[in-house]
């Protein structure tokens, strides 16, 4: 690794005092790309009181961490962050910049790209280098995968969906260089975050649940949806959805899995009354065991799962819930099955 090779950058962030998993996932992938390019990985981390978190970024694969541990960086303020980051880009000249598709990342990334006059791809699900070392930024589209490249402008910037890259194994023996970043002096800002309010999330978090039950248009009605929700509860699973279920108002957008929603990688995924459209399926690529329940034996969903059941969900799901509940209340049967 030599120093004059333009670095691969990761814009980190702090949520509630912690560095969220997405930052580590991206550093893991940045490390792979950087090794191929023989380039260093540099991470930016702004916030207050974050210095003691920096070691974990080195363990994940960073060579340099630019730390902005200052009151001016305490909460995300778009204009201050943008000015500091673009100034640092001028100095360090990264060839690649990866940003998590978090709320901050989704606002900051296009501001950075526009300010630097370069391209930006959205919510990538894979990042690879082509023969010429150019970053292929892959996003799902039209039932397939589309590779986007930014051939001429630098840096090449991409936001990365949560959960598409594995957590890197942390190597506690790794360390690196810390460089301090100061906020711009006395900047007049036009927008200002006054307060950050956290609300307790409803239900089990999709990203960390070992089992995900997802329902689709086949639920047919809010009653049908309720049955699927009960199954999720009986299995202690997180409840996910497809777009039509959200559009029908059966569930919140928060539960939508897929290209425009959440990316999950549970141990077990059970898809009910959904057709396996790619925009949904890209959200669960990482699942270990996949099960589908659909009343149409020809449904494309069956081509994408490990176990298939051809049944009307309105009959099958209540029967399954009943059997699961009986198991629970009948220890003899339960131990027998186990």
């Amino acid at each position: 690794m030599s120093d004059h090779i333009n670095p691969v950058w990761v814009i980190g962030e702090k949520v509630d005092g912690n560095i969220p998993p997405i930052c580590f996932e991206i550093i893991g992938q940045a490390r792979k790309l950087a090794d191929e390019l023989d380039a260093p990985v540099e991470v930016l981390l702004f916030g207050k009181g974050i210095r003691d978190r920096v070691d974990s970024l080195f363990h994940a694969g960073a060579d340099v961490v630019h730390v902005g541990d200052a009151t001016g960086f305490e909460v995300y303020q778009s204009e201050i962050y943008l000015a500091s980051i673009t100034a640092l880009v001028d100095e360090r000249k990264p060839q690649i910049m990866l940003i998590g598709s978090t709320f901050m990342g989704r606002e900051l990334a296009p501001l950075i790209a526009a300010k630097l006059g370069t391209g930006l791809s959205a919510h990538c699900i894979d990042l690879v280098l082509d023969e010429d070392g150019i970053l292929e930024q892959q996003i799902p589209a039209y039932g397939g995968l589309m590779s986007i490249i930014c051939p001429d402008k630098r840096p090449q910037i991409a936001t990365v969906a949560r959960g598409v890259f594995p957590m890197p194994t942390l190597d506690e023996s790794r360390s690196g260089k810390i460089l301090q970043v100061d906020p711009p002096p006395e900047m007049i800002t036009r927008v200002k975050t006054l307060e950050v309010v956290h609300v307790e999330p409803k239900g089990l978090p999709l990203e960390t649940a070992p089992v995900v039950v997802a329902g689709g248009a086949g639920a047919g009605s809010s009653e049908g949806w309720q049955e699927i929700a009960e199954l999720a509860e009986a299995l202690n699973a997180a409840l996910g959805s497809t777009r039509p279920a959200v559009d029908e108002g059966w569930t919140d957008l928060e539960t939508m899995i897929g290209q425009s929603g959440r990316m999950v990688s549970p141990e077990i995924y059970i898809g009910i009354g959904l057709s396996g459209e790619q925009q949904h399926m890209v959200g669960i690529m990482g699942a270990k065991l996949m099960i589908a329940i659909n009343n149409d034996p020809k449904s494309p969903v069956f081509g994408q799962v490990d176990i298939g059941i051809v049944e009307d969900c309105r009959q099958f799901v209540p029967a399954l819930v009943k059997a699961l509940k009986e198991m629970e209340s009948d220890p003899v049967r339960a131990t027998h099955v186990v």
Binding site: E136, G144, S147
Partner: peptide
């Protein structure tokens, strides 16, 4: 600045 370079099924 960006172009579609490949489409895959």
């Amino acid at each position: 600045p960006t172009i579609v370079s490949k489409l895959a099924y």
